[in-house]
Design a binder for these strands. Structure first.
Lengths: 184, 184
DNA sequence: CTTGACATGTAACAAGTTACATGATTGG
DNA sequence: CCAATCATGTAACTTGTTACATGTCAAG
């Protein structure tokens, strides 16, 4: 439901190709909305069929031709409608396969589970570094879009990511401590 | 991919009907894995076809008949294989539609966005209360399963939920403060 | 007499994942 | 010469969502 609106949101800033969109997702909202390239192209087709976006083929000489998509009036209306709708309770949609594995972990040894948690903690630390790049690309896009308020909202989402990862690291550390106590 | 393993995990504790499973999901892992009833019945069919579970029809007199599913040897093997596999980086799968709306929020007024964040904060506070029930049902199931280590892992996942919600509330408060400053 | 718990599902659709498929140019 | 970037997609499959469909019994 939301990938469509995500695409409309980006096209609302300006025209883009599927490839551009793919990069934009990756460099900005990937942390909370990962979009596969194949999915983006599928959605572009469907949005175009519904008249929410339109494209123009741009013939290039030293690069492959491309389709530049832009949002239509109908598309902008749909985007703004979605944006002002009351968001559903997001907590009820939270999903985490790692936590299910933890939930059922009594079928493994305590040592194996400590390793699992340590791996999770390391993943978090690595991801925290990757988020720094996201902050940098916010600066980059800010200049492109030329809208001071936009980057404020972007940074709020980046803050969420940082807080989430910190929380995960702390939870993992606490959990490891508890398991080590149990192992005695 | 994981609903299957979640079902196997519960059946590994003991036999259950689809209805029981539906309740078990709701009362324990719902926070990080919500399963629709319809999805559970579909997966049960598919797991049975694959020989990972088997069922016995139980005829009841004052209640509707039911199918009691139990895990097979093959099912247990598959479950343990999944459990000991290295979990994928979970952070790259995190999804949150609310954050996308925040990301694109410069198309709305600051006041509207403050309201949105306040609603989010309230949802979090309400959900925090709901999680207390989950903690209680951990105690209930602990007695049923009679495995002291199991409930330790269950409580780790409940801790994660509490930390996550606290983090969300704090983030929402900070964000509201920032927007109020901006509104001046 | 009505609500909630028990109990099982199907059908249609939407969204996400994985694998495949192609091919040019640029920079090191 | 090899890897990365540019650029577009299809096909098959798995998951997840929403709406529909049916019916009993117990308790308040």
């Amino acid at each position: 439901m939301s990938l469509k609106h995500g695409i409309l949101g980006f096209l609302n800033y300006g025209s883009m190709t599927g490839y551009d969109l793919s990069k934009a997702f990756l460099e900005s909202v990937d942390f909370f909305w990962h979009a596969q390239t194949s999915q983006i192209y599928r959605e572009l087709n469907s949005l175009e069929k519904d008249g929410l976006i339109a494209y123009e083929t741009i013939i290039q000489h030293n690069k492959p031709n491309k389709k530049e998509y832009s949002i239509t009036k109908k598309g902008t209306e749909e985007f703004l409608k979605w944006l002002s709708e009351e968001p559903q309770n997001e907590l009820s949609r939270f999903k985490n396969e790692f936590l299910i594995k933890i939930f059922f972990s009594d079928s493994l040894t305590v040592e194996e589970n400590i390793k699992k948690l340590e791996k999770f903690k390391n993943d978090c630390i690595n991801y925290a570094e990757a988020l720094i790049n996201t902050s940098q690309s916010i600066d980059f896009y800010q200049r492109k879009v030329n809208n001071p308020l936009a980057s404020l909202y972007w940074s709020l989402t980046a803050d969420f990511g940082k807080s989430y990862i910190l929380m995960c690291i702390q939870w993992a550390e606490n959990s490891i401590t508890k398991l080590k106590e149990e192992a005695l």
